[in-house]
Design a protein around this nucleic acid. Structure first.
Ligand SMILES: [Mn+2]
Ligand SMILES: [Mn+2]
Ligand SMILES: [Mn+2]
Ligand SMILES: [Mn+2]
Lengths: 217, 217
DNA sequence: TTAAATTTTTAGTCTTACCTAAAAATATTT
DNA sequence: AAATATTTTTAGGTAAGACTAAAAATTTAA
């Protein structure tokens, strides 16, 4: 049995290294799960004992295949619940994360799979993140950051890298939503800002914002 | 903040006494939550400290108004989730309890209330148990056990007292479901069994079964 | 290539929620 | 009204998951 706390560590390791394949540092994990390095060391040992993580002292951690699958299934639940909250319960995309953090730990295979079917097998969550399937696989993100797009080109906003509510609320305020067509009009070398255009408006966004908006072309 | 474990104790006390108003014994609670009397004593003290329970040593426990509301809100969530699982996710009534035991602890006012609306404000769960409203109130059960109904009378099956999966599976097997019209044909004094009749069949049920089936007349 | 800085681990505590065993209080029988 | 049985509480312990402070290992800088 994997405990709630173990699931959160698995997620952290999965997200920090490329799906847990890269070795990640104790400190990075501590930061991610809001705990201390010493607590991480304790937990890592437990995960290694359960064959969920590969660990040798002072060398960082990565996930085993089993650990990677466990992590992906928690992430699958998290993202499915986010879709449910937005599509069925009138939550906005900046309100779902905290609740999904709780719902992702509910254990029932039937629940996940029926929820998946009820939502008509969504492939992405409300922030554009891909939803892993039953086997933990998902298509790689093929979108590209607006910051790396040349002036004159356009695409569809399909993923926001930062999904903290402060950033999402900025997007709400500025009427930018997933699915919007965005064209890059101009790049300003002085402060790295960009001028972009949507159906309804023309606006300037900072480098920080641009780096978190991903378009599919 | 009320912990998951505290919520389970509150529910137990609520269910054992009439909505927590009656004083219930340490042993009864231990039995209900599958722990030991000594653990119950510890927890009761904590609930009393938090003003959720009324407690004096050796005198049993009851709930304060605050505790009663907290318990009712957990039960509200439990039953709403059961409705969701049956009505939207193709669970059968004997599969929902375990999952609802987990979902009932998810904390989000918006979640409960939106779920309630999404389900179109159900008044009863899949076992006929009433769903408390936001203030913890619900209409009293006015149905009566089949065992207490005289031969010749009939009613609609609207509540099953025992909702363990073994009993629910017995009902499934015998094609008895909530909403069925049931008529009591005969009472057999020898073993206290009853002969009943539904649209589709005539059958004999034991005293144990009869005592768990409630009809509204 | 030492010395200094940083990271990671270990050692020792704390809290929550359990447990067992024994003591104390209450309830039930003779 | 004792004696006995039962229930409840207390005392002392354990495991999970966190923490701080100090030691050890590794990395970076001089
Ligand atoms: Mn999220
Ligand atoms: Mn998301
Ligand atoms: Mn239930
Ligand atoms: Mn129920």
């Amino acid at each position: 049995m994997v405990t709630l706390s173990e699931e959160n560590y698995l997620k952290a390791i999965y997200h920090l290294g490329k799906q847990g394949t890269l070795s990640v540092s104790t400190n990075a994990i501590a930061e991610k799960v809001s705990s201390k390095a010493s607590s991480v060391t304790d937990m890592i040992k437990k995960l290694a004992d359960k064959n969920l993580a590969n660990y040798t002292r002072y060398q960082g951690v990565s996930l085993t295949n089993e650990g990677r699958l466990a992590a992906a299934l928690v992430i699958r639940k998290h993202r499915l619940w986010e879709v449910f909250l937005v599509n069925k319960l009138n939550f906005s995309w900046d309100e779902v994360h905290e609740v999904a953090e709780q719902l992702e730990h509910v254990k029932s295979l039937k629940l996940v799979n029926e929820l998946d079917a009820f939502l008509e097998f969504p492939t992405h969550d409300p922030h554009g993140d891909p939803i892993p399937d039953k086997n933990g696989n998902h298509s790689p993100i093929k979108s590209i950051s607006i910051f790396d797009i040349d002036a004159g080109n356009q695409g569809i906003l399909s993923f926001v890298k930062d999904s903290t509510d402060v950033f999402l609320k900025y997007l709400n305020k500025n009427k930018l939503a997933l699915g919007d067509t965005i064209k890059v009009l101009d790049f300003e070398p002085f402060d790295n800002s960009l001028t972009i255009e949507t159906k309804s408006q023309k606006m300037i966004i900072s480098k920080e914002v641009a780096q978190n908006l991903y378009l599919s072309i």
